[in-house]
């Protein structure tokens, strides 16, 4: 406890947005990405990335939950009894997830229906508990909030990349806007454009293994380009 308070004393108390704060947001997007570097939250990356719309909605939901659960936990961190802190964190997460789910159900029912259990399963997403334990329990609310936003964005970025690849190659569309396919509904009609006649949508991209391949390729590319990640296993 003493250590924690000492650390917090040094920080500026206002809602400043300097270099350190910016790093809280950018760090999880690349150097410390929750999905590709910490390999957390992969389960939902497989399940909700068949369509870009689903991935974006899921990304927004997770970002909101990480940001606000981080903030609430940081606000309460001195009052939370250490012996039941995990349960308290879970209650905060579950509360926010239920709020997000109720709102989504009211705003866009079909998307809620498609995401079905995966909104509820945000509760068990390891990114959340990980951030609460590692960051929010020992930092101020504002910084924790930014850290939550950063981690949520890091997760969303990967989800969106995977979903773009899967929807484009698996269905030939993006955000339900038809791009490439064998009928006249599509912008690029493969039946009419002769040099595209070999093209066929790949159903494998819609199946779960494709998400694994794509996540793996992202990890490979990221590590070959980012010096900091080399030799971290």
């Amino acid at each position: 406890m003493a250590e924690v308070q000492e650390l917090t004393k040094k920080e500026p108390s206002s809602f400043s947005f300097g270099k350190a704060e910016r790093k809280l947001i950018t760090d999880p997007i690349n150097d410390n990405n929750p999905v590709t570097v910490q390999i957390l939250g992969v389960c939902s990356a497989l399940a909700v990335t068949t369509l870009l719309t689903k991935a974006i909605v899921m990304g927004i939901a997770v970002t909101l939950v990480t940001a606000f659960s981080n903030m609430f936990t940081a606000m309460l961190r001195d009052y939370i009894p250490k012996s039941i802190r995990m349960i308290v964190q879970l209650v905060i997460i579950a509360f926010l997830v239920t709020v997000v789910e109720l709102i989504l159900k009211a705003v866009n029912y079909p998307i809620w229906k498609e995401l079905s259990v995966f909104i509820g399963l945000i509760i068990t997403n390891c990114i959340l508990m990980g951030r609460l334990e590692a960051f929010a329990m020992s930092n101020k609310p504002w910084r924790s909030f930014l850290d939550g936003i950063g981690n949520g964005l890091g997760y969303s970025v990967i989800l969106i990349i995977v979903a773009v690849v899967r929807e484009l190659f698996g269905k030939g569309s993006l955000l339900d806007y038809k791009i490439i396919g064998p009928t006249s509904e599509y912008v690029l009609n493969t039946n009419q454009i002769s040099w595209l006649s070999w093209y066929a949508t790949n159903n494998l991209a819609i199946l779960s293994p494709a998400a694994m391949f794509i996540v793996a390729i992202i990890i490979w590319v990221q590590r070959s380009r980012n010096r900091k990640l080399i030799d971290i296993s």
């Binding site: 009052y79 009894p81 039941i84 308290v88 209650v91 509360f95 709020v99 109720l102 709102i103 009211a106």
Partner: peptide
């Protein structure tokens, strides 16, 4: 005491939301 207060607050807010959004749902 902490647990009871927390549970009551969370339950109250969620119950309010569920009944408030029921019509739209």
């Amino acid at each position: 005491r902490f647990t009871i207060v927390m549970t009551v607050i969370v339950a109250f807010v969620l119950a309010l939301m569920v009944s408030g959004l029921k019509g739209i749902h």
